[in-house]
């Protein structure tokens, strides 16, 4: 089987995600890699998926507002806990 010939764009694209996940041992990834380096279309597709990953990773981590924290603690103080499922509270068994 000659590399690059049997792999269509559609087949190559399916392996892009295995490549992104680091599953490079997946049998088709090598063949698809060969296709990709010679195919601008698939190379661009991979770049765009990497861009999606970058943008998601760079999203700002938010801080919970202090007012929310206070609201939660206030509610908790007036909320009863459920009973443990098995008999009376036994730390050893629970944990």
């Amino acid at each position: 089987m000659k590399e690059g010939i049997l792999v269509t764009c559609e087949e190559a694209k399916q392996t892009l995600h295995f490549h992104l996940d680091g599953d490079d041992h997946h049998p088709h990834v090598k063949l698809a890699h060969h296709h990709r380096v010679t195919c601008a279309h698939c190379e661009a597709h991979l770049d765009q998926l990497k861009e999606v990953e970058r943008e998601l990773r760079s999203m700002v981590q938010l801080s919970a507002p202090c007012s929310l924290h206070e609201r939660i603690m206030k509610r908790v103080q007036s909320t009863p806990q459920k009973r443990p499922l098995y008999g009376s509270v036994d730390r050893g068994k629970l944990m």
């Binding site: 939660i72 459920k82 499922l85």
Partner: peptide, 14 residues
């Protein structure tokens, strides 16, 4: 978030 923590608190013994 408030609802989550309330559920966590009430179900914590379980």
């Amino acid at each position: 978030v408030q609802e989550t923590f309330l559920r966590v608190y009430t179900n914590l013994p379980r």
